[in-house]
Nucleic acid binder design. Structure first.
Lengths: 340, 340
DNA sequence: TATTTTTAGTTAAACGTTTAACTAATATTA
DNA sequence: TAATATTAGTTAAACGTTTAACTAAAAATA
């Protein structure tokens, strides 16, 4: 049988209350007693029962982690890394993470994950864009919510954001510094605030360098970011502008599609066209040539989200604080200085 | 405040015991009372507290899902799909799934996931190969274990297995039927039972067709299944045997590496070489040409694992029953009949 | 010295369930 | 009809914690 607080109390020859107080670092217990109790805890390999604890304290020790099925299954392990960061941090802080996916077309009345219905969570992390209706149906549970890489239209939630503007600037400036003038932006899912910001960074960098980019260099649509979409968009781009020498693709999958199109049409990377992606996933290294990209600290985003959430749960923070994680330019072989 | 069993009892004008019995489908309660109680439950949107339940029943309602970090982060969402299947089935059966990763070099004494240390799980699912030391350190918790796609050396656990032999045969027979004679097998991680079985299926199919495959057609090593490894192995193959016309690669990532090598060396797929993979992940469709492959029912593997585990937990099954999921040949464009 | 304050604990109630043991009412049997 | 069995519930203890309220002993103060 697993040891209970009673066993510890008996072993240390104190009351169960004392054991509980030691566990919670209450300063009312003398160092001597504290040591005695801690020794007993270690000897018996005692771990408090979550059930008993939850029953009296009305806290579950669970953090929900919600992501759309689509995003979770994405070929690039972007959000799996975010999850990993969250799980590590939660483990550290004595919380469990309950991962559940929802449909990206979630409608009001659709079944919610069990732990939500059963109110078995202290707070919830939502990773990536989800339907507003989903967030709405969470409201009545009155638990803190932290969003990752997503700002819903009505805003007002604490979130962990990527410095997308900076990323867009870094990518574009890298191309400008290499002497490029006709720099294109290719981005799907343009309604996503993050993609819009990357475009904004792109524009800011061009402005700063006094480059007036002519028509047809910005190709966007609102389809899901994917290889196919990148391939298609590259086609549209090259139909209009044969003079393009550099492309900034708003995420990695798009970049791979763009690369495929360029290869299929007899151009060479980076000889004819330089290409920069966004995200930095392993696949970037395996493709030919390895992709220059903007690195996003994925694991850190997960840990930050948990920290933010726990700060709110412990009243250390009001519920509108947000964190912005920084990005970094990773230069590989898909970009080079323009031929004179 | 969330409703408790007392609120339901008051609303239905019965004792709390009656409510509990109704929830557990005890036949001692009349249909009339049962209806009355169920109505109250629905009206109040009552869900029993896991904490209270766990405290008295000594069951947690949690299923652990363990996977090595390496496998979880793999570019192909193979195990994420398996997890998804497990989560769906668990949700259905009123269980939570606690996902945690371990290091693939887990050693005795390394920290275990929190829910294990705290004994907060009724059973555990291990997805993919893990170090034997990890399984050993689980033993003392005396909870049922179900393995997915892995048989440890000392065996003895219920598991969900892929019909790898059948898969190997299907792939190889497909190539044989297309007229190929010099059919190679490329497989990394050969110490993995699943890969060995795929090789066995390959051999069986050749035997059945009375094809004596000469030297150098089987290229294996014990490195992790990956693109680079596939690329390298293909190099070794073509150095020895220029006459190969078809290749069965033991998983998808390997196949992609092989494909890359073939392209880089001026051969065409499927014109010069036919190629079959194993796993069927989305990426197979996006590569050029789309890959003929053996489809593995990934989601089903997850649901089966949960079913197996719950059967054991409910004493419906002894703890050595295993399930084998079936595979299917998916013909795409990477294979074709041999040129006469 | 007598009183008050502080220290270092202990006692006991409460949290929301499950379930064995009990009971009152009704049905069956001798 | 009296005794027994069945039905449809109810009562109450138990699960393992937390924590407010209490207390005995020691220290500080008047």
């Amino acid at each position: 049988m697993r040891p209970t607080i009673k066993d510890v109390a008996k072993a240390a020859n104190v009351s169960i209350a004392t054991v509980s107080l030691v566990i919670h670092n209450n300063e009312r217990i003398s160092t001597k007693t504290r040591k005695k109790v801690l020794r007993a805890i270690k000897e018996l390999n005692y771990h408090p029962s979550r059930s008993a604890r939850g029953l009296v304290s009305h806290q579950t020790g669970n953090i929900g982690f919600i992501i759309t099925e689509e995003r979770f299954l994405r070929t690039e392990p972007f959000y799996t890394r975010v999850f990993l960061g969250a799980e590590f941090e939660a483990r550290e802080k004595d919380y469990y993470v309950l991962l559940a996916t929802i449909d990206s077309s979630f409608k009001e009345g659709d079944p919610l994950p069990r732990f939500i219905l059963e109110r078995n969570f202290d707070g919830i992390i939502i990773a990536g864009k989800v339907p507003t209706t989903f967030i709405d149906s969470l409201l009545k549970y009155k638990r803190p919510i932290v969003l990752i890489d997503f700002i819903p239209p009505d805003g007002g939630y604490p979130n962990v954001l990527i410095n997308n503007i900076k990323g867009g600037m870094l990518a574009t400036e890298h191309l400008i510094n290499a002497g490029h003038k006709n720099i294109a932006f290719i981005g799907g899912e343009i309604s996503h605030p993050s993609i819009m910001e990357r475009l904004r960074g792109y524009n800011l960098a061009l402005e700063k360098a006094n480059i007036r980019n002519g028509d047809g260099l910005i190709v966007t649509n609102d389809e899901y970011l994917s290889r196919q979409n990148g391939y298609k968009s590259a086609g549209r781009l090259f139909n209009n502008r044969k003079d393009v020498t550099a492309i900034f693709a708003s995420n990695n999958a798009t970049a791979v599609g763009v690369m495929q199109y360029i290869k299929d049409n007899g151009y060479k990377i980076p000889d004819d066209v330089s290409l920069v992606g966004f995200d930095d996933v392993e696949a970037d290294l395996l493709i030919d040539p390895p992709l220059t990209t903007i690195r996003v600290p994925k694991v850190e985003m997960g840990t930050e989200a948990v920290r933010l959430l726990l700060d709110i749960l412990n009243n250390k923070s009001n519920s509108t604080k947000s964190t912005v994680v920084q990005v970094e330019l990773i230069i590989r072989e898909s970009t080079r200085a323009i031929k004179k």
